[in-house]
């Protein structure tokens, strides 16, 4: 039953989230899953890179070495991308956008190293969607004041307010589902290839890895950050 009827070959396809161990917290059983482990690994990699980058920048030389060049390249690329979309608001949101860009990119690429990508868990992407949602509405109230927010809700006519509210709520859901479904589809397809064609899956799945992990992962990272920036810039911009 179950998987057996799905795959007559009976191969073990494995792309689900597994629990590693569980513990009791306030009477609830809480599971530490593979997602947590993969997020921790990605975090450790990012932290190690940040410590090395901090040291390289503190001892910066006039003629930059290889590593210092890489750090400057990353920072300049992020600054250019964020400045191009957000304009005068870019200094305030550079930290947030840069952080989620690097985190999502490394998470998506981590499928290449045999991890289950953390972004293929809806809990991770939905958390980022919620953060974007909070940022949008905090900045909307901060820049447009309550009057502007109410005017935005009653945009063409006041009777449209419920539809506008539904549209606002749909933003984080569609944002997170897009990232989640793209990464999950790549993970599932590669798991199916490895399980069903295990006899002949020798070298050519590398091409699939390049498409699903590198290309699709980079595009989805870019799209998530661009949409976040566009929404936040829209919320910050006042009418005059």
């Amino acid at each position: 039953m179950g998987q057996g009827i799905l795959l007559s070959a009976g191969a073990d396809i494995d792309f689900m989230i597994h629990g590693v161990f569980s513990y009791e917290l306030f009477g609830q059983t809480v599971w530490i899953t593979t997602t947590h482990v993969c997020v921790l690994i990605v975090m450790l990699v990012i932290t190690a890179f940040c410590i090395a980058a901090n040291r390289a920048v503190k001892h910066a030389s006039d003629v930059p070495g290889t590593f210092q060049n890489v750090v400057e390249l990353v920072v300049e690329m992020l600054d250019k991308m964020i400045g191009g979309v957000m304009g005068k608001f870019s200094p305030k949101f550079r930290n947030y956008i840069g952080t989620i860009f690097i985190f999502i990119l490394l998470s998506n690429i981590s499928g290449l190293f045999g991890l289950r990508p953390p972004t293929a868990d809806y809990g991770v992407t939905f958390a980022m969607g919620i953060m974007t949602f909070v940022l949008i509405h905090y900045n909307q109230f901060k820049y447009q004041k309550v009057k502007g927010v109410i005017a935005g809700l009653c945009d063409p006519w006041p009777i449209w307010a419920p539809i506008n509210i539904i549209g606002d709520i749909a933003v984080p859901i569609s944002l997170s589902l897009r990232l989640f479904a793209n990464v999950l589809s790549g993970t599932v397809m590669l798991a199916l290839v490895y399980a069903l064609l295990s006899k002949i899956a020798i070298i050519w799945p590398a091409a699939l890895h390049v498409y699903f992990d590198l290309f699709s992962g980079a595009i989805q990272t870019y799209v998530f950050c661009m949409l976040t920036m566009t929404y936040i810039t829209n919320a910050c911009t006042t009418d005059e």
Partner: peptide, 15 residues
């Protein structure tokens, strides 16, 4: 790319 990624969403819901 941005427009295509947004247009892709409906297909992803089906998926």
């Amino acid at each position: 790319l941005l427009g295509q990624a947004v247009a892709e969403t409906t297909g992803l819901y089906g998926l």
